[in-house]
Structures are given as C-alpha cells and as structure tokens.
C-alpha cells in the first residue's frame, strides 16, 4: 500500500485551524471549574418528581434524582432480579450480571405479555427482515436454504437414531 501524504495546502479545507488553541495541550479546560465540587451534594436541588411507580436507584446515591423515567417499572421475575441487582453497588458484578439476566428473562415475559394482550408477535418483521429481503436477498435466501438443509439433516439423523 502506498502511503499518501496530504496536500500541505490547507486552504482546500474550509475552516482549517479556526479552533486551534495553543493552550489546548494536553488538558484543554473542558471543565469550567467553579469550586462547587467541594460543596458535594449541598446545592439547591430542583423540585423532586413524585415517584408514582417503583423506581430503583443505585445505592451509591442517597435517593432518587430529581427527575427520572417512569416507564417499564420492574415487574415479574425480571423485576425480582432487578431488585436483587440494586442491592449491590455499581462497583460489583453482582449488580450488572443479574441485570443482564433480567433483560433476557424480560424478553420471554414480553412475548408472554404480547399473547396475553392478544398480540401475536411477528418476530421476522420485528427483526427487520423486510429490509433484509429488499437489500440483501441473496444472503437471506442462502441462510434460509442452509438452515432448512441443516434442520432436515438433523431431523433425519434423529429419526434414524430412534429406529
């Protein structure tokens, strides 16, 4: 591969160097330091949103933030797992791993809820197979043929084994 060095004439690049700042090395003052850090949480907080649903909060803070989202409060088995997870700090795998597990359990709960609400989830559509059919048809057909062939081979092997 040839190494291309750029044209040193930067006038071709509109705006070249407009934000160059000789003091910007290595720690450009991104933070507009006010000293408020040393007051810690001693500041006039915004009004507190009322929690009308269960909202889990990290045990690394004393309570809820002034505002928060209220959709999808913890429920079911996944909710139990999330409550368990929030007993541990963000520093602990015992916090994150149960949350990941809860997310997977929640997927199954979502399918059950759909059925309960009279919705039959169209999983192929949810996976965006419309776009795959439109833009990647050959690969989709190939995948479908391979899946079918492997399934048939497996089925025939299992039947043979049973005999």
């Amino acid at each position: 591969m040839t190494m291309e060095y750029p044209d040193p004439n930067y006038t071709r690049i509109k705006g070249w160097g407009v934000d160059a700042d000789p003091k910007n090395d290595p720690t450009y003052p991104m933070k507009k330091y006010t000293g408020d850090d040393h007051r810690r949480l001693d500041y006039r907080r915004p009004p507190q949103q009322v929690a009308e649903v269960e909202v889990l909060h990290s045990n690394e803070r004393p309570g809820l933030s002034a505002v928060f989202g209220t959709r999808q409060p913890p429920s079911g088995l996944s909710g139990q797992l999330r409550r368990f997870a929030f007993r541990y700090s963000e520093n602990s795998f015992a916090h994150w791993l149960p949350l990941l597990l809860a997310d997977r359990v929640n997927v199954a709960e979502g399918i059950l809820n759909d059925f309960r609400n009279g919705i039959i989830p169209n999983i192929m559509r949810e996976k965006g197979m419309g776009a795959e059919w439109k833009y990647n048809r050959k690969k989709l057909i190939k995948k479908a043929v391979i899946t079918l062939a492997v399934s048939l081979a497996l089925l025939s092997f299992l039947r043979k084994d049973r005999r």
Binding site: M30, R45, E60, S65
Partner: peptide, 25 residues
C-alpha cells in the same frame, strides 16, 4: 438530560448531571 443547577452542570459537564439518573451514578 441535565438539570442545570448541580455542581456538574454548573461546570458545563451536562453529560454528567447528578439529578437526571437514579439508576447509575
């Protein structure tokens, strides 16, 4: 989502607001 009044927001660290996320510090 940023409150504009916590020490982080006052120092223009709006991506690190302390009053917008109960779930993770």
């Amino acid at each position: 989502v940023a409150c504009g009044v916590c020490p982080l927001c006052k120092q223009e660290l709006y991506g690190n607001c302390h009053e917008a996320n109960p779930g993770a510090t």
